[in-house]
């Protein structure tokens, strides 16, 4: 089962590289959306592997909080150049 997690970590490195290399702020936001979702899904996988439901509940909350944070940040950055 460890190989699944290693594959997920390798997939997580792709948006990290993108966030590092691309200077466009919207590309960075896309990378953030990808990372926030992937880390929460990894937490869910680990909670199932360990049969630990307290991690699972926290993973679900972090998944929704990550999306909420992304939306707030996107709205603020969108309005940055107005006014």
């Amino acid at each position: 089962m460890d190989s699944i997690l290693i594959a997920m970590i390798l997939a997580l490195l792709i948006p990290i590289y993108e966030a590092w290399q691309d200077d466009n702020i919207w590309q960075k936001m896309l990378a953030f959306a990808s990372i926030a979702t992937k880390t929460s899904i990894m937490m869910l996988v680990i909670s199932v592997l360990r049969d630990d439901w307290s991690i699972g509940v926290v993973a679900v909350i972090i998944l929704s909080v990550g999306e909420a944070g992304l939306m707030l940040l996107a709205h603020l950055i969108k309005r940055l150049n107005e006014v």
């Binding site: 990290i16 966030a19 953030f32 990372i35 926030a36 937490m43 680990i46 972090i62 990550g66």
Partner: peptide, 17 residues
């Protein structure tokens, strides 16, 4: 600040595992 949000997501993963 966007990278800081990414760091927060990864830190949450590390803390939970």
């Amino acid at each position: 600040l966007v990278i800081r949000a990414i760091l927060g997501a990864i830190a949450a993963l590390v803390y939970s595992i």
